[in-house]
Design a protein around this nucleic acid. Structure first.
Lengths: 236, 236
DNA sequence: CCGAGTTTGTTCTCGCAGTCACAAAGTCCG
DNA sequence: CGGACTTTGTGACTGCGAGAACAAACTCGG
């Protein structure tokens, strides 16, 4: 009865809401943590607590994937982990390249969370001559000009940009040109990419500014409540 | 006529939607970029393009702050910049401490975007003895035990956590205990904090996994469209 | 001084996301 | 073997956010 877009065979889900997609990795991490503690099964309440969300929301999110729980019992940790990993698509490793091996790029290259969660850094690229050939996190830094060649050879579809803002758009253009269709951008710049290419942005100073806004309001409120007293007596 | 919560003198705004708050820093950056190019005024259309959003959304967002534009003309770049900065609360610098001076912590300490956008890193803390006294980004790494003392002395209300996941909750607890009320968390762990404390989370592997999900779907769709052809002929 | 043109600020509508509450479905004990 | 209990999965409701469209307000040229 849907918009007749074929293949209604064994995938009753499809079209998982974006908000849910963003939480699935959180659930996956919580499940991994439970598995590490040798917990074989858990209720939605427990898993929700471990993931830091509401249990109803968790159940609804999981229901988009299918019915992988058992009523009256809960979820099997390993089984659910696999199902989520399969849905996200991290049952096999994704090759990733990092462009811009400054402080942040080096930190990312060394970040174990990438390799342990379905991603494998296959190349580090930097345009600066003095970076060439240096070894970072066990990988040799290669010239930016090699981008297309590496992407083609390693079948890379995900790229990380950690260059200064002015260079970000050029790097993005080159990535798209080379065939990359998903970009994680750490540069504080707006990227223009053609349709079909996904960009996610991580912006450190924006996060801090959002905190600052709330902090300002907290301070203003605190001041307001003291306002009645009009304390100005530092004359003692 | 609002819910009579005092002080209806010269602040007609208050209660800015969270989604808008998250975009204000983006607008601020776009404005800064325009100012750097000596552009004194701009329309909502231009600013929206620079910030990568819809112009209607931009105008709506700005309207929460007040009427700082001129109909028929547009916005004065400097004036609007100041108003946004004032609303966010970054007209003066916020002192920030960073706990966990590993690869990521060092990258954050060296990140110029912090200092140039309303934040000043006042201390770097790490629990590891071998880190003590080392100089990173012009600051000496101090023992984690000094946390409370530093927070009190420098009036710090914002803390950054860049320690491994297992230590994150302990660090958060200590921060809250010391009086910090806003936390930017880079550790892949769920933090439990009391009400009144804001936590924002930046999780690198989650961002990648979200990209992977979309990438999987792209691959699946591509396969689907080729399915009709059933190309298996690599026999040549 | 006035009208045409431009751009903001706001209203309205639609869709997505979060939460509550409950029926369905399974387990476990007597 | 049956009933009480537990927990999932889902339907209904509410509220926020995005976008389109329009009225208000300002500028500028004659």
């Amino acid at each position: 009865m849907n918009t007749g877009a074929g293949s209604s065979a064994q995938e009753p889900h499809r079209d998982i809401p974006e908000a849910t997609v963003a939480r699935l990795p959180v659930y996956l991490r919580a499940l991994t943590s439970l598995a590490d503690r040798n917990i074989a099964s858990c209720s939605s309440e427990e898993l929700a607590a471990a993931a830091g969300v509401n249990s109803a929301k968790l159940r609804k999110d999981l229901s988009y994937l299918g019915s992988y729980g058992t009523r009256g019992v809960g979820y099997d940790v390993d089984y659910l982990s696999y199902q989520i990993a399969r849905e996200i698509g991290v049952t096999h490793d994704w090759p990733v390249i990092i462009v811009g091996i400054g402080n942040l790029g080096q930190a990312l290259a060394n970040f174990s969370g990438f390799s342990s969660r379905g991603f494998r850094t296959v190349a580090l690229l930097d345009a600066a001559p003095q970076m060439q050939g240096r070894s970072v996190a066990g990988l040799e830094v290669r010239p930016f000009a090699d981008l297309a060649e590496i992407v083609a050879a390693e079948q890379v579809s995900i790229g990380v940009i950690s260059v200064p803002a002015p260079a970000a758009q050029d790097v993005a253009d080159a990535m798209v040109e080379a065939g990359i269709s998903s970009i994680l951008n750490f540069a504080p710049a707006v990227l223009n990419v053609p349709a079909g290419v996904d960009v996610r942005k991580v912006d450190l100073s924006i996060e801090l500014q959002i905190l600052a806004y709330h902090e300002s309001r907290k301070a203003a409120e605190a001041e307001e409540t003291v306002d009645n007293d009009s304390e100005e007596g530092i004359t003692a």
